[in-house]
């Protein structure tokens, strides 16, 4: 069965909502007049970013790099915070890492929580874009009943892998995909003795792990103090598994979005009340 697609005009508005959301989370929601949601996403993403920087002494900035044109600093790149594009650019101008002042970053007391919060701001910004896209569809093509719009399905997947499919009535896929993502992640953590969710050791792998969402973040917080005491036999495989699980969750969220979109469009338009 071919998936249903929104009409061209709606697709263009969805594209604009995604672009605006990446620029500034919450901005894309204004296209569908969801001002309350827009404000919530804005505060959530910027609050997480700036609170995270404060808690970690801005040591996140040590992992980023300036992208320059003709010796002029243009864009600061830092994964995954860069998905909150304007917020990160402002932060990169305002903050200086305490490490450049001679402070040992491992001695910053709330560093792990700070990195988790600022990284979450980037991931949340990506899902704010999905939510804004779903809101545009819901505005342009209203449907009867309490149907789940695609953005809600995607965001639910970020909270818990498989939850987006569960909300759209796909219980088998919810358990299979959610169980696979969580199982692969926990197995990988086990192989790495729960010390592999660490930005300082593997900043790029860490960015992938962050896309696992809320359940991954809780495990990361719980294991924040864990450090390797020996070279483990399969710790590299563990790192690969946990990072793959995070990236697989993005695929699961995309699928939840598209299935919910198909259901939404297949439901037919809301009839005008007589």
């Amino acid at each position: 069965m071919e998936p249903l697609l929104p009409p061209e005009e709606t697709r263009q508005r969805i594209g604009a909502a995604v672009g605006l959301s990446i620029l500034l989370p919450g901005l894309g929601h204004l296209l569908s007049w969801r001002r309350g949601w827009g404000l919530l996403w804005f505060l959530l993403c910027q609050g997480a970013l700036f609170l995270g920087l404060e808690l970690a002494g801005a040591t996140q900035l040590d992992y980023g790099t300036w992208f320059s044109f003709a010796d002029i600093r243009a864009v600061f790149l830092l994964l995954p915070e860069v998905a909150n594009l304007l917020g990160l650019q402002v932060a990169a101008q305002l903050y200086v890492s305490v490490e450049s002042g001679g402070v040992d970053p491992t001695r910053v007391p709330w560093r792990d929580l700070g990195h988790l919060l600022s990284g979450a701001s980037g991931v949340l910004a990506g899902f704010a874009a999905a939510h804004a896209a779903g809101a545009v569809l819901a505005k342009d093509r209203p449907r009867p009943g309490r149907r789940v719009h695609p953005g809600v399905a995607a965001v639910a997947t970020l909270l818990l892998p498989g939850a987006g499919h569960w909300l759209t009535g796909r219980r088998f896929k919810a358990l299979l995909l959610g169980g696979t993502v969580l199982g692969l992640f926990l197995f990988g953590m086990l192989l790495g003795d729960f010390a592999d969710f660490d930005r300082q050791r593997h900043p790029y792998y860490w960015a992938g792990q962050m896309f696992g969402g809320g359940s991954f973040w809780l495990v990361a917080l719980a294991s924040a103090g864990a450090r390797f005491t020996a070279v483990l036999r399969f710790m590299d495989a563990g790192l690969l598994f946990t990072t793959s699980a995070g990236l697989f969750n993005v695929v699961v969220a995309l699928d939840a979005y598209h299935r919910a979109q198909h259901d939404w469009l297949a439901a037919g338009p809301r009839e005008a009340s007589s």
Binding site: M1, R170, F172, K173, L176, L177, T180, V181, G183, L184, F187, R233, F234, A237, L240, F241, S244, A245, F248, V251, V252, L254, D255, R259
Partner: peptide, 28 residues
């Protein structure tokens, strides 16, 4: 050990790809 890890990863990858491609449980 590496072979068993490969089996686990292959199965996980296949579940995700099949789940993305299909919606029917039997086809997945």
């Amino acid at each position: 050990g590496l072979f068993l890890l490969l089996v686990v990863f292959s199965a996980a990858l296949a579940v995700i790809v099949s789940g993305y491609r299909d919606d029917d449980p039997a086809r997945i």
